[in-house]
Design a binder for these strands. Structure first.
Length: 115
DNA sequence: ATTCTGACAGCAA
DNA sequence: TTTGCTGCCAGAA
């Protein structure tokens, strides 16, 4: 029958959610890595946008494990309190200093490689 | 329909 | 090195 024309579901957004949920505990990834894995390369902004509306998704999205390519917690202000994201990451064993992840490459989880 | 913005990334000056 | 612009795609006003 007619295709289920769902507004924003089962496309870029859902993929981002799936990948993000696949990020292991204590690991992190970057917007660009996810975007590249999805095949859009430079559409990293969409990844951030997807996570922004991740609240639409009923499941918990470990968006705190997604940071920019510098390992900087750019979206920490979207977690309610500026320290929430940082706290969550440190809770998982991630060391954060000055809003930046230490041992970023060490904790980095690339979907293009791991998946 | 047009315009602006957005949790980024890359490159130029 | 830092700062700023551009490109990417989608959604909101």
């Amino acid at each position: 029958m007619s295709r289920p024309k769902l507004k924003s579901d089962n496309d870029f957004f859902t993929k981002v959610y799936e990948v993000t949920k696949c990020v292991p505990y204590g690991r992190i990834t970057s917007y660009g890595a996810i975007a590249r894995y999805l095949g859009s390369g430079r559409s990293a902004r969409m990844v951030g946008w997807a996570l922004n509306v991740s609240h639409n998704n009923m499941e918990f999205i470990p968006a705190h494990r997604v940071v920019n390519r510098n390992g900087l917690l750019t979206g920490k202000y979207h977690f309610g309190n500026s320290t929430t994201m940082e706290q969550l990451l440190q809770n998982e064993g991630i060391i954060i200093e000055n809003d930046r992840i230490m041992n970023f490459e060490e904790k980095f989880w690339d979907p293009a490689i791991e998946l």
